[in-house]
Design a binder for these strands. Structure first.
Length: 955
RNA sequence: GCAGGGGUUCCCGAGCGGUCAAAGGGGACAGGCUCAAGACCUGUUGGCGUAGGCCUUCAAGGGUUCGAAUCCCUUCCCCUGCACCA
């Protein structure tokens, strides 16, 4: 078993020999990168998996002879650490506790965490340390972070490039915003309301005298069915001035709207009671609607004004019903007559419902009145149904028969053009509360910059780029296609955070996902940067290095420039990009977008591998909830190789893995078994073995040895194929678990052969042959243990630099493998019969199938289908057997048998069984007699003999 | 709602037209080894069976096929993502 001391020893030696520093040479290259971490917290086992996968692949490819580049850097751009630092400044107890107990930061370090730069530096140092403890084969000379001055030059170049291609535009954008902190807030910064979305609502301006009563809606198509407006009589309303219009909205709504309509100002208070009973004009239908009171209207949501569509909105329907019954209110406002006249207007047809779906859904949900909490469920349900399945009624002139979503968009667009409606934003759920305790609002940021992912031409080349990439696993390709189509313009500038300033508009920082789309190219040149003054990195430099513009002007020495450029051209394009599946819709898609926009086609990335998530004992891992195991702790308790092995064996990279302490024990046992295996071999061999010197004869004498060698080669072949496709779990199933099972079986079978000198020599050679292959096969997964075994048993150099085992097609023999199965199946069958007979046998007679039966199997195999007619025809033609009756019975029988037995051709069963006679008789506790011809067959059992299935007679 | 992925024997999980009562691991049980425990190895882990067999199973229902856990349709259930955030 490896302990940390041994692991450290090998890490030091790899480092001393610069084993993983990759420079261009004559070998074929392989360049892979994995999403760099955002170091705002400690590394946990989920990260461990993310970085072990590329490491295993890198090690595998290196052993195959590729010049592999596996670099690493730090993504420090962004706002979260700013928020964290602020919380430390405020001495927020929750944050201090999180960093002390979950991230396990020492007390004296925490004192410095008021500085965001300190935080990212602290954690990137820690990440690097843990990555080295994991034994990752990273070329650390290329390490950088995203606010290095050199890197910032690269980002500036990239953005100027995109701008010159007109892929960046200016616009406005709604964000969550804390009025108290005067800053946009992300989910991390919230006390309440995590994951709440921002919804766009249409503001419908209902004319009333010289004012507009402004109602908000998600469903402007329902304007056709409006019957009245609702105001909350207990709320305060005000008149505001927007441009040259006066709007009436609730006072609370103004607190929100002021962040969205810059020029809005309060004009006066409005007495809601005086509005009720008055009429407004519908901007779409020009009908007049009465204003009525309703308590369900929330003055804090949207504009605090609602227009009523009782046929299709449950709240409106039930509010109207409530009002009709409320004689006190009707009298108070003197609106009795008008209200009595009001009836729902049906405008949307919905399969399964009648004219007034709102009425039905209220009944279904058992909603009692407008203040019933079930009302919102009913509303959501009907909203969804009408959105997905609703058709506008034929009574609606131009839109009759059209689908609701289409009509909605049409109406919004038309009314926006004629300025009859406006747009506002509000949260999908409330409240949304900032960590400072203030309720957040939706604010519109102006002069925001966008990357134009909606651009048709850009989408088109992005699709082209995707089409020529390999995607692992293949199912994710559809996801990419979907996201590339779905992406709209992306706000790529930010006010706060660490990062690079937008080169042409200094008030903005470049958004963190936008500054990490093509940075893989930067790895290729990063190791040269310490020799260069960042000010010399002008656009002509990057144009020349990355795009071969050949127009460099600046102070960088020509030779150096040439080296940099040829290094980039050696490594690029990127062979594999690895990242988690939640980044498919943003980072990985952006990665394709930006490569296709900036680089020529021959530099486009070759492939993407998408990862799953990590679970801890069946629950989602989450640092903020404390449900994590730090990678460093896992290494300390189990050792890096155990951790690596578990992470690679428990699930394929794209599946979710589940860290279970219990399963980990099994992995640890398995690794110990592997590590001690060589001792076992030496025990059998009788002295120390030398991995480099053994001789495996071409002709293997014993069939069990031939079988074992064949199995080894099969596992080598399968493991190699699996690794080529990043299937680490499958690769380990083959190279560790199934191979071990075969080793167990082999030992079980040869147990008694060891006493026989003439058998033992072959066994010794087979075991050293196996050891030599096995250590190399396991080296990418558990490099420390393998280096240790390799060096202590005569391996030359580092196993990390040894050749990946190549499977030997001549040693992989299906028939040899099937023969062993025949022996084992025979043993099972005899055991089963013994069990049924329930008495100890004296002698067991085994009859091999006659020649003609094999011939019929050959024929059946040729035919391929259980077609008795054709098998018979062919058998008669070839005269395989004289006895037609026997032939017919047999042909009939094998028609079914054939599909079950995995036929690989004739096997010399007589020899194979005789070779295993000793084993069988010991296993079965009786003397075994094998017959080619049934010379002794008192019960006529020999006729049962089939190929692969000798007949049995027990007495 | 949209998109993607799933529902497999006690549990986790492979399989994705015949070699499937279904890999591998975990757990449980029995046996071997051992003074004993652990470790290790062997076997059992759907039911029936006095000759290697038969019957019932892979969410539910229907279909295609000589043959389906595997293909098609319908239904039910579960997971993930849906943006300004790393």
């Amino acid at each position: 078993m490896t302990d940390i001391i041994i692991e450290k020893k090998w890490q030091r030696q790899w480092n001393n020999k610069n084993l993983f520093q990759s420079n261009p040479d004559s070998r074929e290259k392989l360049f892979l990168t994995v999403a760099f971490p955002y170091p705002s917290g400690a590394m946990h086992i989920g990260h461990g998996r993310t970085y072990t996968v590329p490491d295993v692949y890198a090690r595998f490819k290196r052993m195959q002879g590729y010049n592999v580049l596996f670099p690493m850097a730090w993504h420090v751009t962004g706002a979260p650490v700013i928020g964290i630092a602020k919380r430390f400044q405020r001495q927020d107890p929750w944050t201090i506790d999180l960093y002390k107990n979950v991230h396990k930061v020492p007390e004296e370090e925490l004192a410095e965490f008021t500085n965001p730069n300190y935080i990212v530096n602290y954690f990137s140092t820690e990440y690097k340390d843990v990555m080295q403890k994991m034994g990752f084969s990273i070329d650390w000379r290329r390490e950088f972070n995203t606010i290095d001055p050199h890197y910032q030059k690269f980002i500036e170049w990239q953005f100027r490039k995109l701008k010159s291609k007109e892929l960046v535009r200016k616009g406005i954008h709604p964000v969550k915003y804390c009025p108290e902190c005067q800053n946009p807030v992300g989910d991390h910064d919230l006390l309440e309301g995590e994951g709440v979305a921002i919804n766009e609502l249409t503001l419908v301006k209902f004319k009333i005298n010289d004012d507009y009563l402004v109602a908000a809606t998600f469903r402007p198509e329902t304007l056709f069915g409006a019957t009245n407006l609702w105001l909350n009589p207990d709320a305060e309303y005000i008149r505001i001035k927007i441009g040259d219009e006066n709007w009436i909205i609730s006072k609370k709504a103004f607190n929100n709207i002021i962040h969205q309509k810059k020029d809005a100002s309060i004009v006066s208070d409005v007495d809601v009671n005086k509005l009720i009973g008055k009429y407004v004009k519908n901007p779409l239908t020009n009908e007049e609607h009465i204003i009525l009171p309703a308590s369900f209207v929330n003055p804090g949501y949207a504009s605090g004004v609602v227009y009523s569509v009782p046929a299709h909105a449950p709240a409106d329907y039930i509010a109207l019903k409530d009002l009709k019954k409320d004689s006190e209110v009707l009298e108070k406002y003197n609106i009795k007559k008008e209200v009595e006249k009001l009836e729902p207007i049906s405008i949307i047809e919905l399969e399964g419902f009648g004219k007034f779906p709102a009425e039905e859904i209220i009944k279904n949900f058992g909603v009692k009145n407008q203040n019933d909490p079930k009302l919102s469920d009913a509303t959501n349900e009907l909203y969804k149904l009408e959105h997905s399945k609703g058709i506008m009624s034929q009574t609606i002139s131009v839109f009759g028969g059209l689908k609701v979503p289409f009509v909605r968009d049409e109406i919004i667009n038309n009314l926006l053009k004629s300025k009859k409606v406006d747009v506002m934003y509000d949260f999908s759920e409330k409240p949304v509360i900032c960590r400072c305790g203030t309720e957040s609002v939706v604010r519109i940021l102006e002069d925001q910059w966008f990357l134009k992912y909606s651009d048709e031409e850009w989408k088109r080349i992005t699709y082209n780029c995707l089409a020529q990439e390999q995607i692992v696993p293949g199912e994710v390709r559809a996801n990419f296609e979907y996201y590339i189509g779905w992406l709209e313009d992306w706000a790529c500038s930010r006010r706060i955070g660490l990062g690079t300033k937008l080169p042409w508009d200094n008030q903005w920082l470049i958004e963190p996902l936008s500054d990490s789309t093509i940075y893989m190219a930067y790895y290729a040149i990063a190791k040269y940067m310490e020799k260069i003054d960042p000010d010399d990195l002008n656009d002509s430099f990057f144009d020349d290095v990355f795009l071969d513009a050949q127009k460099y002007s600046g102070d960088i020495n020509t030779e150096l420039l040439k080296d940099i450029k040829s290094e980039f051209n050696y490594w690029y394009p990127l062979d594999w990009r690895l990242s988690a599946k939640d980044l498919v819709g943003n980072h990985l898609s952006f990665h394709i977008f930006h490569h296709s926009a900036i680089f020529p086609e021959y530099k486009w990335p070759n492939g993407i591998v998408v990862f799953g998530m990590g679970l801890l004992e069946g629950n989602k891992m989450s640092s903020s909830k404390g449900n994590v195991i730090l990678l460093n702790d896992a290494i300390e308790t189990h050792g890096a190789d155990v951790v690596r092995l578990f992470l690679m064996a428990s699930a394929e990279p794209w599946q979710d893995f589940d860290w279970r302490e219990n399963e980990l024990k099994g992995i640890k046992k398995r690794l110990d078994w592997f590590s001690e295996f060589l001792d076992k071999v030496e025990e059998i061999y009788g002295s120390k073995i030398d991995l480099e010197s053994y001789e495996l004869p071409m002709i293997i004498k014993r069939s069990i040895n031939a079988w074992f060698i064949s199995q080894i080669n099969m596992h080598v072949r399968n493991a190699t194929l699996a690794l080529e496709g990043f299937q680490t779990r499958k690769a380990l199933q083959e190279s560790l678990f199934l191979l071990k099972k075969d080793i167990d079986h082999y030992f079980y079978r040869i147990e008694h052969d060891l006493e026989n000198e003439s058998f033992k020599e072959e066994i010794d050679n087979v075991l050293i042959y196996l050891s030599n292959i096995w250590i190399r096969l396991m080296a990418p997964f558990i490099p420390h243990s393998c280096e240790e075994l390799w060096s202590t048993h005569g391996g030359l150099g580092f196993v990390s630099e040894s050749k990946w085992p190549k499977y030997d097609a001549n040693r992989l023999d299906e028939k040899v493998q099937r023969a062993e199965e025949v022996v084992m199946e025979l043993s099972e069958d005899i055991k089963e019969i013994k069990k049924i007979l329930n008495k100890a046998p004296q002698k067991i007679h085994v009859y091999i199938a006659p020649q003609w039966k094999w011939k019929i199997f050959d024929i059946a195999w040729e035919v391929g289908k259980p077609d008795i007619g054709r098998i018979m025809q062919e058998a008669v033609k070839q005269k395989v057997h004289d006895n037609k009756k026997e032939l017919a019975i047999f042909a009939k029988k094998i028609a079914r048998e054939m599909t079950k037995i995995n036929y690989v051709g004739k096997i010399d069963e007589y020899t194979v069984i005789n070779d295993s006679l000793e084993f069988l008789s010991r296993e079965l506790g009786a003397e075994i007699l094998v017959y080619k011809e049934p010379t002794y067959d008192p019960e006529g059992k020999s006729g049962n003999a089939l190929p692969y299935k000798p007949a049995i007679y027990i007495e």
